[in-house]
């Protein structure tokens, strides 16, 4: 297989963009046409066994069928036609995802149990948790808005983290989780609805708004949400779905 700098260059019919550590001067690769597409003849004439054994991949954004190029560490493989990211290297993705998920669960718990923001007024401090805010919307007959806030800031982040734990932890311990495929699909469906970073900005805007009326005190949950925002982003960056499926199939179920 491919082994970095000095090895035989992959076939020039591959189209790929590796961002870093790609050998710069491979005489065999056609650098003049980096965006060249795989054509019919290229597939049919691919006599080389190495080419034949390279799996195909389809771009999820433009449906172009292409050979999977080798991936260097830290590299990203993009679609030859529309430049959508097909996959990237996630060094230690599995371990990192698991560790970061564990951290994120703690942060989410703190973020939801402790007051997020407080107001100082005549010597008194009124503090609210995020759940108070949701409850208040519900009681004020704004049930739909309350549900929307609950789903995007509490339910979906919790589901994402639990699904990740459910998928990764048994595999780490050498067991295959049951209903793996269902939970994996759940995870994919949940992701767009996790809006921790938007909530963060919303709380900051309210903080400035309220500061005009009274003294405001940022609560513990606010710091926790800020940290959660970064940890969740790190989880998303470390998570490697391809590796996960590979491990799952290796675990033999």
């Amino acid at each position: 297989m491919h082994s970095g700098g000095g090895a035989t260059p992959p076939d020039s019919r591959y189209d790929w963009t590796n961002r870093s550590r790609a050998p710069k001067m491979d005489p065999g690769r056609d650098f003049r046409h980096p965006g060249r597409e795989l054509d019919n003849t290229a597939v049919e004439q691919a006599q080389d066994t190495r080419v034949k054994n390279t799996p195909l991949i389809a771009c999820h954004e433009c449906d172009l069928l292409q050979r999977e190029p080798p991936l260097h560490e830290g590299g990203i493989v993009r679609c030859a036609r529309c430049k959508a990211e097909l996959y990237r290297s996630h060094p230690d993705g599995f371990e990192r995802t698991l560790a970061l998920t564990a951290g994120a669960i703690m942060l989410l718990a703190i973020a939801n149990l402790f007051p997020i923001i407080g107001m100082k007024l005549q010597g008194q401090v009124i503090e609210i948790t995020l759940f108070h805010a949701i409850e208040m919307l519900w009681n004020k007959d704004m049930k739909s808005v309350g549900v929307l806030v609950f789903v995007t800031t509490m339910l979906m982040p919790a589901l994402e983290l639990l699904a990740l734990t459910y998928l990764l932890l048994p595999l780490r311990l050498g067991r295959a989780p049951v209903h793996f495929a269902f939970v994996f699909r759940l995870l994919q469906a949940v992701k767009p609805w996790v809006m921790v970073e938007v909530l963060m900005l919303g709380v900051l805007v309210s903080l400035v708004k309220l500061a005009k009326i009274a003294g405001v005190v940022p609560g513990i949950a606010l710091w926790s949400f800020a940290a959660l925002m970064f940890v969740m982003a790190a989880v998303a960056a470390a998570f490697d779905p391809r590796d996960l499926w590979r491990r799952m199939s290796e675990s033999g179920s």
Binding site: I117, A133, L137, G146, V149, V198
Partner: peptide
């Protein structure tokens, strides 16, 4: 997703200013 901003602002303001 960033359009949700105002919804969160309303939620926080309503809960706190009572």
């Amino acid at each position: 997703r960033w359009s949700m901003l105002d919804i969160y602002v309303v939620a926080i303001m309503v809960a706190l200013v009572q």
